[in-house]
Design a protein around this nucleic acid. Structure first.
Lengths: 342, 342
DNA sequence: AATTAGCACTCGATCGAGATGAGTGCTAAC
DNA sequence: GTTAGCACTCATCTCGATCGAGTGCTAATT
């Protein structure tokens, strides 16, 4: 569809614009080492590329700027794999080498490093816990009415929730319940917990006491509770480094969006596994029509369980970001999986 | 030091400036209902107030703007108690009325509501946990090498940490240790835990096995670990609504500051209990020399355990903010204390 | 003696008229 | 097919004029 030369020129323009943030003129391109044509030739090609919708002109006497379609072509066809330099690689390796025990912390640091390395806003969604298997359940009564239910997974994650106790239940009864739960439900994946709770335990319990029924309902609630969103946002202010976002109103809209966890979940919790790039107007929300979002998933034993993503200007260093994202997602997956298999 | 009339005028100027964000002229003041003097008189007084350092003039032909000293006088002497309207009061009452069980969540919502109500940035530091008493300790082994140590307080808070197990320790030994800990340390305030751990348990344990010693060290670490900072920041972008912060660079400095938890802790974790106001240049950090910070503490059984605070422009609605802060701090204290005493 | 009316003066903000220059599109020559 | 050359466009910058809010001072008023 596009001639080789057109692709060469489009690539040069996007490349230039990504680094300069200024509309690119024909002369600038013709002076590049990889281009052997005069500015006039470039001008003609540019004119064609504009007609085809790959470029835009802010105004008549300005240079050209890639359109969404232009970026899309660039991302899909022209991007060359970016190599990480020593320092970057070092930082990344260090992240996974460090002997930090909690997986959740690694995920948190991932967001941090992602943002530092790319100079864009990083968002990481913590790993879904459903694949984790039950290690231990504990119910600690606080007083007559309340107790804390604690669930420990085999990966060492601890979830807890306050529950209300049914009237008149005794400590010994709770203990019996907990013992029963532990013996019956150990090693069950969390997502099966609800089902198994009713299947295997329910009958057995009814033999013991009526109140268990009520207790069960509570536990059920506490276990099924969709885990609170583990959204790690880092470097939200980086967008302000971009010259095209020197406008408070633009920035405000974006940052307000980022302040809302539900929106982050919506933007970065794309169902797709693998790498996804959403460019400029491909985004639904007006606030980020001038931004691009790149996401990829990380997985646990082959199943995607979380996302890492970057929000930056449409004029983003796609190549670099994609490389870093892939690297991090792989690292996270490896780490989680090894931890999972222990 | 300042005559009644000077105070009246200073009050009028600050008041006006807070709401208009524009330098205040003499005519504007003389037209106010509470002022019965001509603009010429006001001008003379203004000139005096400027000489005394309470006002500043952006340039010769502009009106006057309060200086830090001016705001300070206003806050210390002129502020009149602000009454909350129906809607505001309703929202506040609802917060504490709602039957949410986790105290931590109430604290989180407090930040949310604080920001909504004031239209400024709100920061709440979660309650220090040290006053809480131990309810239950649990150690759940995950495999040969690792375990999760879980501490439940009598208020239902759950702290957990991954620990490494000493070589060759068995499940039964761990169980014995846990039982011992629970029987000996139940109801001990967390801040005494370390001390008591060594005093009472240490000797007893050595009788049981050598490895306990090593185990103890680990536990000690896990219990003493300064709890991760529970800093709730809400409405960080609100500062952009202020006309004097239409400048990306200014805003960037501030938001970058707010992104850093250690800085928030430093800014809002003032040791003082009771209400504190830091105005403009009274702040050390350049980024917020044009901002004011108001903080107050909330307490548990009389002892301050956390902070609520507001960051806004120096041109802040001090009266309103102070009222809301006091209300919230009191509410939180009441709630925590009642929960604590259960 | 305190207050106020009056007036000249200051200075940022706003507006329009050039001047500038980067970049284009087109034509004609190579 | 490519390129040199040139007229044309248009955002941006600069400079000066104008405007007006607000002051400071002086003289009149109470």
């Amino acid at each position: 569809m596009l001639s080789d030369r057109q692709q060469l020129i489009l690539n040069a323009i996007v490349d230039n614009y990504i680094h300069s943030a200024e509309p690119v003129g024909s002369r600038t391109i013709s002076k590049r080492d990889d281009i052997g044509f005069s500015s006039a030739t470039i001008r003609n090609e540019m004119s064609d590329l504009e007609e085809l919708g790959y470029l835009e002109q802010p105004h008549t006497s300005a240079g050209r700027v890639p359109s969404t379609k232009g970026y899309r072509f660039y991302v899909d066809n022209l991007i060359q794999p970016h190599l990480l330099d020593e320092g970057e690689l070092g930082k990344l390796k260090q992240l996974f080498a460090e002997r930090i025990l909690h997986a959740e912390q690694v995920v948190e640091y991932t967001a941090q490093i992602l943002s530092q390395l790319t100079n864009y806003t990083a968002v990481v969604l913590g790993p879904e816990i459903f694949e984790h298997r039950l290690k231990h359940i504990q119910i600690v009564p606080l007083n007559d009415k309340e107790a804390v239910a604690i669930v420990v997974t085999h990966t060492g994650r601890v979830e807890n929730k306050l529950i209300e106790l049914p009237e008149g239940i005794g400590a010994s009864e709770i203990e019996r319940l907990v013992n029963l739960l532990n013996s019956k439900l150990s090693d069950v994946p969390l997502w099966q917990l609800r089902q198994r709770l009713y299947q295997e335990i329910s009958g057995e319990m009814r033999r013991h006491a009526e109140q268990y029924e009520e207790m069960l309902k509570l536990l059920d609630l506490s276990l099924i509770q969709p885990e609170e969103d583990r959204v790690y946002l880092r470097g939200a202010t980086k967008i302000m480094n971009q010259p095209e976002f020197r406008d408070v109103d633009k920035v405000k809209d974006i940052l307000e969006l980022l302040e809302r966890n539900d929106q982050l979940l919506h933007l970065f919790g794309v169902p797709a596994d693998g790498l996804t790039v959403r460019i400029g107007q491909e985004n639904q929300l007006d606030a980020i029509k001038q931004c691009s979002i790149i996401t990829t998933s990380y997985s646990l034993g082959g199943k995607p369980v979380g996302m890492v993503g970057i929000l930056g200007p449409t004029r983003m260093e796609y190549g670099r970001v994609i490389t870093v994202l892939n690297y991090l997602a792989e690292g996270l997956s490896r780490m989680l999986t090894s931890q999972f298999e222990k």
